[in-house]
Structure formats: C-alpha cells, structure tokens
Design a binder for these strands. Structure first.
Lengths: 75, 75
DNA sequence: GAGAGAGTGTGACTTATAGTCCGTAGACTT
DNA sequence: AAGTCTACGGACTATAAGTCACACTCTCTC
C-alpha cells in the first residue's frame, strides 16, 4: 500500500497512452492537466485524486477502473 | 465529471460499508482515517486521492475498482 | 420523558501535498 | 541542427488531508 501502487497505476496509464500513440503533452492537453504532472503520475511520483484519475481515463477513452485494476490482493 | 461523481463513489462506499455492518467510525479505524473524513467522503464532499481510496477498499475487504465502478460512459 | 450511548452531519480550521508554471538537459528522429 | 519527447528541478498556488467542537437523531433504559 504505497509507492509501488502509484508506480503500477502510472505504468498502466503510460501503457494505455502509448497504445493510443499519444505524447504526454497530448494526453495532458486532452485531460486539461499539466504535462509535467502527467510525467510525474506515470513515474509513480503523484498520488492522484479521483477527479483527475477520471479526467485521465476520459482522455484515454477508457474506464477509470482499468487504470487502477492492478494486482491488489486483500490477503 | 465532477461532484456527482464523488457522490456516486461515496454512495458506493457507504453501501459496501453497510453491507459489512460497519459504522463510519469502525471503517475509519480500520482504514486509519478520521471518522469525519469518511463522513465527508460518503457524502461526496471530498476528492479522495488514490492512496486513501485503496486504504478504504482494503478496510472494506474489496477491490478498489469496485468503488469507482459507477456508470461512467465515454460518450 | 429525562438521560445515556451510539451513529452521523457539518463548519471551521491548519498542515501537507496535489497540481501548475517556469525552466534545463538528454535521447532520438529526420 | 532543428524538432519532438520526456525526466527532472524550483518556486509557486490550489486544494486534499486530517482534526476538532458541536448539533442532531435514534434507541434503549430507568
């Protein structure tokens, strides 16, 4: 529960972004967020808030659930 | 994309909490958050960050995806 | 039908950090 | 070498995190 979680989510975002052939800047523009912010998010340096998560998902044309659907077990 | 989204997620949290017969205070305790914070989240007054979302999901013994899996279409 | 206890809503507040805006530097492409 | 893309830093502003006191509603018991 912490950094690697954000990194995993950041990785997902990067993956989806590349799938769509978008630059960080293009994604940032679509999501109305800052390019350096997207950079930080993808590198797991940012603890994104829900509204921004949804903005990013929308910019990527995917469900927000896809972005946080990482292997998190409730062991 | 905004308040009603947070309210919808808050509603989900409340629903899951009640399913588990937990009080806000009990949930807050499990998630190591403040009771009034949980109250605000459930009422959609708080734009929760990812880490806290995961804390809450873990406290509810569910996947975080379940909490944000509301009817959001990419129309 | 007053008093106690559990559960919740809410406003106000301080502190931590989310998020922006400026920049520089390096990798890669054409 | 000019253009594109990204990592990263510093300085700032906006807002989330976190806490408190108090009010209110129930329900139960005396």
């Amino acid at each position: 529960m912490s950094d690697h979680l954000l990194a995993a989510i950041g990785g997902k975002i990067k993956e989806k972004r590349l799938n769509k052939n978008l630059s960080q800047e293009a994604l940032a523009s679509r999501a109305e967020l800052d390019r350096t912010y997207i950079s930080g998010v993808e590198r797991g340096k940012r603890n994104v808030s829900l509204l921004n998560l949804f903005k990013i998902a929308q910019a990527l044309e995917i469900q927000a659930t896809e972005l946080i659907d990482i292997g998190v077990t409730n062991d």
